[in-house]
Nucleic acid binder design. Structure first.
Ligand SMILES: [Mn+2]
Ligand SMILES: [Mn+2]
Ligand SMILES: [Mn+2]
Ligand SMILES: [Mn+2]
Lengths: 228, 228
DNA sequence: TAAAAAAGTTAGCTATGACTAACAAGATAA
DNA sequence: TTATCTTGTTAGTCATAGCTAACTTTTTTA
């Protein structure tokens, strides 16, 4: 009787629900996650999530009381972290070896993360010499299933005159990523906040001798660490 | 209106059926393929294949008359060939870059061949510098969808005294492939037929200073070209 | 604190892709 | 040529995973 978690008898859907719940639980730190919120995140109906949550509770991956909020068991979390590890390793492979761009990697990694083979992911990791971060700057969970969150704040939380360094970008929107690339921002870019316009909260930033004005919504998706 | 075939709206099952039918049609050259034969090959019930064939006929990938034999349309064939291309490119990647063994690649490639991304497969091909053969010796169909069959005969078809070179092995059985590796046979091995025992058709062969006796069944799965 | 809104649940439907059991058509053999 | 076997088809069932519509519970607001 080993202690190893069996990742191999979950459907693609079950995996996606566990990963989504994990991501909602860490995003809104300590804020409870509800059924409808999960439904909206996954773009399915509340009836669908309610149904799946029942199944995942029966399998001891999810905990919740009737009409109550959702939580993951340790096993549920472990499965989610392994999926995130696979997702980010594949994104790194596509980006570093197969000429995929920032905005192209996510959708294909969404498919590749469900391939069932422990050896495949171990060897991919070794082949790339155990990368630490994915192309969007996020930390890749290690083989032991340890999940670390990059210390970061959003660009929108800074004040005029602050200087920061780009550490990660949200990879949820292709259009956003194309936009980031187009204006020339890359990981580690040093960004100075020139001006925050009170009227619409738009922000004038400077980096690499470029000056751009970006919206608050844009700045919410850019993660930085403060330098000055 | 382009001439391109849309590979992206087929389910995994539909793809597997088209590929299976293609492989049966080229294996038993010109011999007709029936519903039950396809069912046995795919290890599903005849009712299941009958059902799927109806769907594939409606989509114009398969041709057949009621109670008649099965055939693929040009479009059906093109989809099958593209799947085989993906399968063999992934096997090559796993074998050449990720330390997978001969017998390990097939099952994972069965999953990877269904990932939907044209760029992924084009770039994987380029990354490996356009390999011509997969790890079992089979020819990888090119990007234009051309399918070539390796000129070959089975080891079992040779006579005493013949000398041949191993060009491919059947990749259907893990146990068979492990056995081939264990006795030391590799692609391009030069094999001499020392003796064919009439009693049970077992064959004594010699290669690289090794002498082995193999069964007829084994020799049926070893593909060679005659040297002498 | 009662009404309204939001959140969660249930019932019943659909599609896909398996299955078994019963049946029909075609091929083979006596 | 008729009986038998093989092959193919159909009907009906199940599991998975979606959906809508109706309902219940909880939370918020007036
Ligand atoms: Mn991603
Ligand atoms: Mn996914
Ligand atoms: Mn194979
Ligand atoms: Mn397949």
């Amino acid at each position: 009787m080993t202690n190893k978690i069996n990742l191999n008898n979950l459907t693609k859907s079950e995996e996606d629900y566990l990963k989504a719940l994990f991501q909602l639980l860490i995003e809104d730190d300590s804020v409870k996650v509800g059924n409808n919120q999960l439904a909206e995140y996954l773009k399915v109906s509340p009836a669908s999530t309610n149904n799946m949550i029942k199944k995942l509770k029966a399998k001891d991956y999810v905990i919740s009381e009737k009409y109550g909020k959702l939580d993951l068991t340790e096993e549920g979390k472990a499965i989610a972290v392994r999926l995130i590890r696979k997702h980010r390793l594949w994104e790194t492979f596509l980006y570093n070896y197969l000429n995929f761009t920032w905005d192209e990697v996510h959708d294909v990694a969404e498919q590749l993360e469900h391939i069932k083979s422990q050896k495949l992911i171990d060897e991919l990791d070794r082949f790339m010499d155990f990368p630490k971060n994915d192309p969007h700057g996020e930390i890749i969970p290690n083989a032991d299933g340890e999940y670390f969150i990059l210390p970061r704040i959003t660009l929108s939380s800074l004040s005029e005159g602050d200087v920061c360094q780009l550490v990660a970008v949200d990879d949820g929107s292709v259009n956003f990523l194309k936009y980031v690339s187009k204006i020339g921002l890359v990981l580690s870019s040093e960004i100075k906040i020139l001006e925050i316009r009170e009227f619409d909260k738009s922000i004038r930033i400077q980096f690499d001798n470029t000056v751009e004005t970006v919206t608050r919504k844009f700045a919410d998706n850019v993660f930085v660490k403060k330098v000055v």
